[in-house]
Simulated scan of single mutants.
Amino acid sequence: MTFSIVARCSRTGMFGVAVSSSSPAVAARCAYAQAGVGAVASQNITDPTLGPRGLELMARGASAAEAVAILKRTSAYSEYRQVLAVDSAGISAVHSGPRALGIWAEARAPDVACGGNLLANDGVPQTMVDAFLVSEGHLGDRIIAAMRAALKAGGEAGPVHSAGMKLVREVSWPVADLRCDWSDACPIEELAKLWDIYKPQLDAYVTRAINPSDAPSYGVPGDE
C-alpha cells in the first residue's frame, strides 16, 4: 500500500524523504529526517517509532546499514516492517520483512533507497532509484521525479490517495514538510504542485526564522 524514497544530496548535504500510499495522511506516520544525520522511511503495517529510533542511532554514529540492522534485531514484529535509511555519508540501507504485504520490493544506491509493498510489480523501486540517479537540480525536484517515475512504472496495485515530502538541511526544523493527506485524483501531482509553489520561498522562510531583519518582504497586504 506504500512506496517511498529516502535520499541525500551529495552537493548540499540536504536529506529528503517522500512517500505515497492508498492510506490517508501517510507522511504523518512514515517520513522522518534530521539535518546532518539522515532520513528514514518506516512503512508496511507501520511502526512510527522506527523512524525516530533510526535517526537517533545514526546521530550516535551508526551507519544507515548498522541502524537498520539494529532496528531489525531489536524491534518487535520486524518481519512485518519495511525500513529505509540513508546517512550523512550517503550509505543507504533497506529492511523488508518477509511478511510485507503483496508484491514488495526494494532498491538502493549511494545516496538513495526506495521500497514499496502492495506494488503493481517488483520493478517499481528500481525505477525510482534510476530516476533519482539520472535527475539533476534541487533535491526536492529529484525526489518528485522519482515519485512520478514510480507511478509511470505502475506504482501501487491500487490507487494512491496521499503523499508527502520532507526536506532537512542545516537548521533543526524541516525546511519543507509538504503533504497531500487525501486526494481522489493524484496525490503525487498535488504534492508536485505544492512543491512548485513552496520551492521559490523556501530560503526566505529559513532566513525569516534566523534573522527577520535580513528577510525579504513578506508579500502580504501592508508589508513594506
Rank of each mutant, 00 (worst) to 15 (best):
S4Y: 13
E224M: 15
A67H: 04
G36Y: 01
P52H: 08
A145N: 09
D223P: 12
G222E: 02
V40S: 04
D184G: 10
P174C: 07
A105W: 01
G90C: 07
A145K: 10
F132D: 04
L50P: 06
E156T: 07
H161G: 12
P187Y: 12
G137L: 06
I210P: 05
G38W: 00
A62K: 11
E189V: 12
C30I: 07
V86K: 03
A157Q: 14
A176L: 06
P216W: 09
E189M: 14
A109I: 07
L191E: 03
V124N: 05
E136H: 10
D47V: 04
A209P: 04
S20Y: 01
K199L: 15
L119D: 03
S183F: 09
A204V: 03
A120I: 02
V17H: 05
V206D: 09
R99T: 10
K72A: 12
A28R: 11
M128F: 08
L57T: 11
L101R: 12
G51V: 00
G102C: 12
G137K: 07
I91T: 15
V26F: 00
Y218K: 12
G164H: 07
W182I: 04
S217M: 03
V17G: 08
A163S: 15
A41C: 15
E170K: 13
Q201M: 06
N211G: 02
T46A: 10
A150R: 12
P52A: 02
A185G: 14
L194G: 03
R208L: 10
S162W: 10
D203R: 05
S75V: 09
A62Y: 05
C180G: 02
I91L: 02
S92L: 02
L151R: 15
S10V: 14
D111I: 10
D130S: 14
S213R: 10
R169F: 08
A150M: 02
S21P: 01
G154S: 02
L178R: 02
G54I: 07
A35Q: 11
